[in-house]
Design a protein around this nucleic acid. Structure first.
Lengths: 236, 236
DNA sequence: GGAATAGTGTCTTTCAGACACTATCTG
DNA sequence: CAGATAGTGTCTGAAAGACACTATTCC
């Protein structure tokens, strides 16, 4: 088989960078980073070609570095979403796009080039302009993938408190719930949410007493952090 | 940007074809199709390079046709699993592999080249020889993907009876449960399974009376088919 | 004190899981 | 008849969801 002589597609990696802005604040919102571009005018997700003998992970890091201007912790998972393979999707050349999602705390996106656009409850963008190419579908797939992770009601399984670390520790149950609501796009039942989440949290103690948050109004809430299960690493 | 002059990877599609053999019989089993190969000797999943300007779907159909010798219904979903991008994974050239799974009834695999190997409960193959490349991981990912679909206990959601049509209609609740058990690799509770599944099934009637199966022993069981929800197409 | 939020205790409903009992077939 | 499998009805325990009531802050 003459492997080298077959025509080969250009392979690009497109990235849906999702975050929750204002996590811990009064109205956190799930957002995606989009960038305006010129060749065909409009908005698109950041992305780039895989360079010779690079991996997807290295390409993602490179796109984040050169196109977005941020440095992404190499331990942050890169989630495969979808492959776009319509041979005519890029009018310039035969290219396939491998769409990935990366979920980052807002602090990791400080100084990023582009715009953080809030995502509607149904996974679409409230934009007058649709995204170029098939990037609207990528955002929807990224949001679906994230929402699965933030579901806390699965049978026989402990919930995970903010698995993608949008919310810095320590936090109150109220803040945690607001973040989950922002991700899921729907209100959650307070009682049930608290009951389930407490099982996987531990209160922050000082001198054996729970540390309380300083609220604007009302009774101060206890502060929690994610419980360290044994066999669990401290870092993600 | 000089798109055409960048070195490009070879892109292959590797396929985990999963089926349940003996569906409806006494001991159905979840199997994957593997093929023996010579270049490096051993077993591997069927796969092949994407040809110029072909889509993944067309490549999958081509691999099934030329390498496996079967014709796959174009409406059967092709599920993206994983991208293998280690630049040294193929010693011959820079190639990335996009692994997909296809779930087929055994009848669609009649005459297929290769061997149907049963999958262990933990998603591994009971093989003395491991699969070439990273194909063992692909099988595990394919099994995971399938098992998610055959879970019937999700909250607030109706279960789906044999969503990948391993079992031909009509069937008894016993046969349906055996198929789900084969996929999930664990025994299911009969009472609960029947109660939940009945909601999405309808009994097969003749002259207004339920049609019964002809059993070897015991009281004959009623036959069911998947209920047609309105807005649901007859075909998959 | 009153508004606002946190936290506790309890009740109801739902459903997974268990089990007893009946029904209907074969040998 | 005994053995086997199908199907029904009922009970229990756990957990979701709802709600009442108390606790603690700021104004």
């Amino acid at each position: 088989m003459d492997l080298e002589t077959f025509p080969r597609p250009g392979v690009t990696v497109d990235l849906a960078l999702l975050t929750v802005i204002d996590a811990g604040g009064p109205d956190p919102q799930l957002c995606v980073l989009i960038q305006s571009r010129t060749d065909p005018d409009g908005y698109a997700l950041p992305g780039g070609f895989i360079r010779e003998r690079w991996t997807v992970a290295r390409t993602v890091a490179d796109v984040c570095d050169r196109k977005v201007g941020i440095t992404v912790d190499p331990t942050v998972p890169i989630r495969l979403l979808k492959v776009f393979d319509d041979p005519d999707r890029d009018e310039r050349t035969w290219a396939i796009s491998i769409a990935h999602a990366v979920f980052l705390p807002q602090s990791d996106l400080a100084g990023a080039r582009g715009t953080l656009v809030p995502v509607d409850a149904d996974g679409t963008l409230p934009l007058p302009e649709a995204l170029r190419f098939d990037h609207g579908q990528i955002v929807a797939a990224a949001v679906d993938s994230l929402r699965e992770r933030y579901e806390f009601r699965y049978r026989d399984a402990d919930p995970v408190a903010d698995p993608d670390f949008f919310l810095p520790e320590p936090f109150t149950l109220h803040q945690l719930r607001k973040v989950h609501e922002a991700v899921l796009g729907e209100p959650l039942h307070k009682d049930n949410f608290n009951r389930r989440m407490k099982k996987v949290l531990e209160p922050v103690l000082r001198d054996g007493r729970p540390v309380l948050a300083e609220n604007l109004r009302g009774r101060p809430a206890a502060l929690y952090r994610r419980a360290r299960k044994h066999g669990d690493d401290v870092a993600r």
